[in-house]
């Protein structure tokens, strides 16, 4: 039996279990402490969806704009994420190419896709059991922070490799967008209320 089934809600401020009246679209506040009370996280669905869409939109310039610029005395080369992966791959550094590709390209995409799937699955019937969805969500949360690997690398490189005229590495606009993308996905996963998964009736 869930709290919704009981038509009750817990005030997260004062731990008072509250009987939820019919809301009629309005807000419920705790009669004890006056804090807003929700059965589920407030606007979880909306927030998650909005942040995921934000991440998806920011993902575009993050991949189109160069993340890193290498300036030598002879020439200047700007690399996008995929361009850098391709260069690593061309240079036969397959493992690193794979790592960068996964961490910087696949993982954010996977996160965005996963969250969108979870959100869709709340409305649409699907075959994946709720427990699996919950595990999927935890996986998203876990790997989310690793997507910042690229940003770390760029930051360190830009800091270390600065020999003025000879060679200089600078972070590009793409890196900013990439970081924004990752932050957006992390915030999205934070906003998601896993209890919603289980609110679908008749599913275990």
């Amino acid at each position: 039996m869930t709290d919704i089934e009981m038509n009750a809600a817990l005030c997260l401020s004062c731990r008072q279990l509250i009987d939820m009246p019919d809301t009629d679209g309005g807000e419920i506040i705790c009669p004890v402490c006056g804090s807003p009370v929700h059965q589920r996280r407030k606007n979880s669905l909306q927030k998650t969806l909005a942040l995921t869409l934000t991440a998806l939109l920011l993902y575009i310039p993050a991949n189109v704009l160069p993340v890193m610029t290498i300036e030598t005395f002879a020439d200047t080369s700007a690399n996008t994420i995929l361009g850098g992966v391709g260069e690593l791959f061309n240079n036969k550094m397959y493992f690193i190419a794979a790592v960068v590709f996964v961490a910087s390209f696949v993982v954010p995409l996977f996160k965005i896709g996963s969250i969108l799937y979870l959100l869709t699955a709340l409305r649409v019937r699907d075959k994946l059991p709720n427990a699996a969805k919950t595990r999927l969500f935890h996986l998203i949360e876990l790997i989310g922070k690793w997507s910042m690997l690229d940003i770390y690398v760029i930051t360190i490189m830009a800091g270390l490799v600065n020999m003025g005229f000879l060679i200089q590495i600078k972070g590009g606009a793409g890196a900013t967008f990439f970081a924004a993308t990752v932050i957006a996905t992390m915030l999205a996963s934070k906003s998601f209320d896993t209890r919603l998964i289980w609110d679908k009736k008749g599913e275990k």
Binding site: A8, A9, Q16, L17, I18, D19, M20, P21, T23, D24, G25, G26, E27, I28, I29, C30, P31, V32, P36, V37
Partner: peptide
């Protein structure tokens, strides 16, 4: 249980 109070949103 105490009854939650309604408010606009």
């Amino acid at each position: 249980l105490p009854k939650g109070l309604k408010t606009k949103r």
